[in-house]
């Protein structure tokens, strides 16, 4: 029961309270770049959930069984980014070969994810927070879900923004940033949410 509570509070934190986009500023580039349409935002979100989950697992294993036993913790950044890059490449090849339907849906987003700071961020935060294997997995997946929620909400607002009238200097990127700011303000309402058993 204890474990379930911990996992639940990690999940709640990653999705709402400490949302990767709105509270921690991780993964803003794809968030701004791929949010013009709800469909594409959905595709990107699902791809991110997948990669963040898998990456959390592999970077945790690499850290625990390679870096720590050999006292190479200072190599974390380099090792993690290589693991993530290789992993994304591998997932891409695997999907292309065996699940072509999923590949055609996610394919174009996968290469972009290597340079998504949310993925490297979740790997580093797992270690920093001292999470164990299961906790890392949960944090990775729910962090991805938080990203999906944020990007889909944002994309649906942005679709309407296209038809609205706004000052010329604010057209495009600036108004999108302001919108994201207001969404971040809404998400602040979740702060202080805690699991009490």
């Amino acid at each position: 029961m204890e474990m379930f509570t911990t996992l639940f509070s990690i999940a709640l934190g990653a999705i709402l309270v400490n949302n990767f986009i709105f509270a921690q500023f991780l993964g803003i580039c794809p968030f701004m770049g791929v949010s013009k349409k709800v469909d594409t935002a959905m595709g990107m979100g699902v791809a991110v959930i997948f990669v963040m989950g898998v990456a959390s697992v592999f970077t945790w294993l690499v850290n625990e069984f390679l870096l720590v036993p050999f006292h190479l913790e200072f190599m974390q950044t380099i090792a993690f980014i290589l693991v993530i890059a290789a992993l994304v490449q591998f997932i891409e090849m695997f999907l292309q070969k065996s699940v072509p339907a999923l590949y055609s849906a996610l394919g174009i987003y996968l290469p972009l994810i290597t340079t998504n700071c949310a993925v490297l961020g979740v790997a580093l935060l797992n270690i920093q927070n001292g999470y164990n294997f299961i906790e890392s997995l949960v944090y990775g997946v729910t962090g991805g879900i938080g990203f999906l929620v944020a990007i889909v909400l944002f994309a649906s607002v942005r679709e309407r923004l296209e038809f609205s009238d706004c000052p010329k200097s604010f057209e495009g990127f600036p108004i999108a940033l302001i919108t994201a700011g207001l969404l971040a303000l809404c998400f602040m309402g979740f702060s202080g949410l805690k699991v009490v058993w």
């Binding site: 495009g172 999108a176 994201a180 971040a184």
Partner: peptide, 16 residues
């Protein structure tokens, strides 16, 4: 975090 989005948005608008 809210301020980050708002201030950067305004700054980019000024640049444009």
């Amino acid at each position: 975090p809210v301020g980050g989005f708002l201030v950067l948005g305004v700054l980019i608008a000024v640049t444009q």
